[in-house]
């Protein structure tokens, strides 16, 4: 098991390193002279030279790359040229919105999606099953940001239960901050919950046909008891894989939904950075997103191995 985790950790580090290399190549080498690129063609040669100095662009590419990596390992992501602040601080401030939003959305989609999936599987072929599956089919097809707009119309404008947008910082009024995240997280959770419900139902139905369920019934259990005691845990395995992928994409999906609710999250930071051509900020923000995605997949893999004894031993004979 330790060897397995170690192996995955190594793969995780390798993925990040290659990802960093790709990002560095795209944002540092491809534009030719990043300083010129950032300042645009109308910049004076003096200001370009000053920025080059400031960004350390005179050093050879490999030194710059290693310097960047080494800096990040120590928590130094460079200084944003446009905002004149350390990138790490800027990102850290925005993660306070993006991360709670993703976690909240994930929790909602699990709490709603899994029970509905189980319910549909147990009532297979009945009216309830059809109703849940039609809802899920629709839920998968609704773009989360558009659903966010609908939610705003109903709950903020129509019923006035919740704020239509904006965000109160956590240290001012924690309750108000949470209220500000409810509609965005619901918007993010809808498609995810629909997918989870569908996957859970399929997995349970598949498990129902397995030989070990027949064995459990032969022991004296009814179908329902056998599925509950032996099926659900087995059915959760494919669900777990999906969960990992989903969280990864939720983190990225928040970028879009933040737009609807004018939330000061990572997404808005990135859009400002793009429009101002702040390569250093874009570089830092994308690598953070990729770390989040990759780390989630790593965690999924390890959890999977903890649940499934067959996987645990594949690397420790």
């Amino acid at each position: 098991m330790i060897l397995f985790a170690l192996r995955r950790l190594l793969g995780f580090a390798a993925t990040l390193l290659v990802a960093a290399l790709v990002i560095f190549w795209l944002l540092d080498l491809l534009p030719g002279d990043p300083a010129q690129f950032i300042l645009g063609i109308n910049a004076t040669p003096e200001s370009v030279a000053r920025l080059r100095m400031q960004m350390g662009l005179d050093a050879p590419a490999h030194e710059r790359f290693l310097g960047w990596i080494w800096g990040m390992l120590q928590g130094d992501f460079g200084v944003s040229y446009t905002q004149r602040a350390p990138v790490a601080e800027l990102i850290w401030g925005r993660l306070g919105v993006t991360l709670p939003l993703s976690v909240l959305a994930m929790v909602i989609s699990i709490v709603v999606g899994l029970p509905l999936g189980i319910l549909a599987a147990r009532r297979r072929g009945k009216l309830l099953d059809t109703a849940i599956m039609v809802t899920a089919q629709t839920g998968v097809a609704i773009p989360n940001f558009w659903f966010g707009m609908l939610l705003t119309l109903v709950f903020a404008v129509g019923l006035r239960w919740l704020p239509p947008g904006g965000f109160t910082p956590w240290n001012e009024d924690g309750w108000a901050s949470l209220r500000g995240l409810i509609l965005p997280s619901l918007a993010l959770a809808l498609p995810q919950a629909s997918i989870l419900a569908r996957v859970m139902r399929t997995a349970l139905v598949d498990v129902t046909g397995q030989d070990y369920i027949r064995t459990a019934r032969a022991k004296g259990l009814t179908m329902g008891e056998a599925v509950w005691r032996h099926g659900v845990r087995n059915a959760l395995l494919p669900v777990l894989t999906i969960l990992g992928l989903q969280f990864a994409y939720l983190v990225a999906g928040t970028i879009i939904v933040e737009n609807v609710f004018y939330l000061p999250g990572l997404g808005r930071l990135i859009f400002t950075a793009i429009s101002e051509r702040d390569l250093i900020l874009v570089r830092g923000a994308t690598i953070i997103l990729i770390v989040a995605v990759t780390a989630t997949m790593l965690l999924t893999d390890i959890t999977y191995a903890l649940v499934d004894p067959r996987l645990r031993e594949r690397s420790t004979p």
Binding site: Y212, T215, H230, D308, P309
Partner: peptide
């Protein structure tokens, strides 16, 4: 089928 008749977990 002895391979699939037991709960793998």
């Amino acid at each position: 089928e002895p391979m699939t008749a037991l709960n793998p977990l």
